[in-house]
């Protein structure tokens, strides 16, 4: 289904080329009734890059993140994803079902509350994306356990989320975001609920598992210390990019 909707977009080229942005958004707009959340945002995200998105509360950071990640469809504009494994396509032209499929195979998510399922154990949360992609339970579990070990969560696999600290929960979320080897990982205030030293640990886990492996990381944050660890900071104000620098 995804293949059929693939667009011959000006930004698209043959799969396998690396000299292209992983994500390229052009003139994104999004309104909620009278509220203009995005007023025409253009942005390019490159492989191996960690980008911080900053701005006042209500400036459109989350909306931008959701549009880039195919969670929301923008009112107008284009979001071209280039996944070396699957080629290029414009997310804005996909329906909800197709965007879900793209999220599953190309994106990872770490949100403030993690969006983990409290009913499941830590490792069960991590295997979910794999199992949604049809990977057999045992194989998924083995892969998940390796990622958890990498993130310092060895031995905590069978814990329920309520039995983990905030920092541990976020690392579970990172493991879940990483387990399917996404092209871009989106994090919305991943350290928002953490103290500064835990926040540092979570950020370095995020960076080492994404940027340091040639993937792209987009972090929405209020914290200048978090932004400092990224390669590039994009400032939003009133739904527009007001600054974009390294």
């Amino acid at each position: 289904m995804i293949e059929r909707t693939e667009l011959k977009h000006p930004f698209s080229g043959p799969p396998g080329t690396t000299e292209r942005p992983a994500l390229c958004a052009r003139a994104l707009t999004k309104t909620y009734g009278p509220t203009v959340a995005l007023a025409g945002v253009s942005i390019e995200l490159w492989p191996g890059e960690a980008v911080a998105v900053m701005g006042a509360s209500g400036s459109g950071k989350s909306t931008l993140l959701h549009c880039l990640a195919g969670v929301l469809a923008p009112d107008s504009g284009a979001v071209v994803l280039h996944d070396p494994r699957h080629g290029s396509l414009d997310l804005a032209g996909l329906d909800a079902e197709e965007r879900a499929a793209v999220r599953l195979r190309s994106f990872g998510f770490v949100f403030q509350q993690g969006l983990l399922l409290p009913e499941l154990t830590a490792v069960e949360n991590v295997v979910l994306p794999l199992m949604l992609g049809g990977v057999e339970r045992r194989a998924a579990q083995a892969r998940a356990a390796r990622w958890m070990a990498t993130l310092g969560l060895a031995g905590l696999e069978e814990r329920r989320l309520g039995q983990l600290s905030g920092g541990q929960q976020q690392r579970v979320a990172i493991a879940r975001a990483q387990v399917a080897d996404p092209v871009v990982v989106f994090a919305d205030e991943p350290t928002g609920a953490l103290d500064s030293s835990t926040s540092g640990e979570v950020m370095s886990a995020l960076l080492s598992s994404t940027r340091d492996r040639g993937r792209t990381l987009v972090v929405v944050t209020h914290d200048p210390l978090v932004a400092e660890t990224c390669d590039r900071v994009v400032h939003l104000a009133d739904g527009l990019v007001r600054g974009d620098g390294r």
Binding site: R85, L104, R105, P129, L130, M131, L132, G133, G134, V135, E136, R137, R143, R146, W147, A149, T150, V179, A180, D181, S208, S209, D212, R213
Partner: peptide
């Protein structure tokens, strides 16, 4: 970063989610 995880191959996620497992 542990090298083992870094070298994990990309999983094939083109399969169908199995209701039986999930």
């Amino acid at each position: 970063m542990n090298a083992a995880a870094t070298q994990l191959h990309t999983p094939d996620l083109t399969g169908r989610a199995r209701l039986r497992d999930l």
